[in-house]
C-alpha cells in the first residue's frame, strides 16, 4: 500500500495513468517544478498493478516465437514460464542531471532523494529549485491494462 502523506510533506506532483499494450517498450517522461531550495528530500511513491500475468494462448504464441528466435525448446520454455511479469522502471533527473533508476521488480516502491543519502539506485542530490523529471520505462507490458500511480512529496 502507498503510505499516507505526513503533515510535513507537500504533494508537488502526482500521476494516475493506465498503460496498455500499445505503450509497451517506450519511455514516458514527466516533468514537475520544485519551487524552492528549502526542501531536504523528495519522497516518490510509485505503484503499478498487476505485476504477474498468467500465460494465456496469446503469450504462449509469443513464447513460441521467442523459442524459435533463441534456438531453444518452445514446450520447455512455456512449461518453465507459467507466469510472466509486467516491468516498469522509474528513473529520475534533477535539474542538474541523471540521478539513477529503480530497476527491480518491486511494483510498490518508496524512493527517497536526499543530498546525504538516497534510496538504492539513486545518487544523493540536493533538492534544488527547478525542473525535475520522472521517466517511466515500460520494459514489459503484457496485461491488457496496467494501473500506475505516482505521488511526489517534498519534505
Amino acid at each position: 500500500m502507498i503510505e499516507a502523506k505526513t503533515k510535513q510533506n507537500l504533494l508537488v506532483w502526482s500521476l494516475k495513468k493506465v498503460f496498455d499494450k500499445k505503450d509497451d517498450r517506450k519511455h514516458f517522461k514527466y516533468t514537475f517544478l520544485i519551487d524552492s531550495n528549502n526542501y531536504d528530500s523528495l519522497i516518490i511513491l510509485f505503484r503499478y498493478n498487476p505485476k504477474d500475468v498468467k500465460v494465456d494462448e496469446r503469450l504462449k504464441m509469443c513464447l513460441t516465437e521467442l523459442a524459435i528466435k533463441s534456438d531453444c525448446d518452445a514446450e520447455l520454455l512455456i512449461k518453465e514460464n507459467k507466469e510472466l511479469k509486467n516491468l516498469i522502471t522509474l528513473s529520475i533527473d534533477s535539474p542538474h542531471g541523471y540521478l539513477g533508476a529503480a530497476h527491480r521488480h518491486n511494483n510498490n516502491a518508496k524512493i527517497i532523494i536526499n543530498q546525504l543519502k538516497s534510496s538504492q539506485g539513486f545518487l544523493p542530490s540536493p533538492i534544488t529549485k527547478g525542473l525535475w523529471a520522472i521517466t517511466l520505462s515500460t520494459h514489459c507490458i503484457l496485461s491488457n491494462k496496467v494501473d500506475v500511480k505516482i505521488e511526489v512529496y517534498a519534505q
Binding site: 517498450r25 503469450l59 509469443c62 528466435k69 533463441s70 520454455l77 514460464n81 516491468l87 520494459h139 514489459c140
Partner: peptide, 10 residues
Amino acid sequence: TRVGYPICTG
C-alpha cells in the same frame, strides 16, 4: 543470445 522479451526484455 539470452532469451529476450517477454521474459527478459533486451
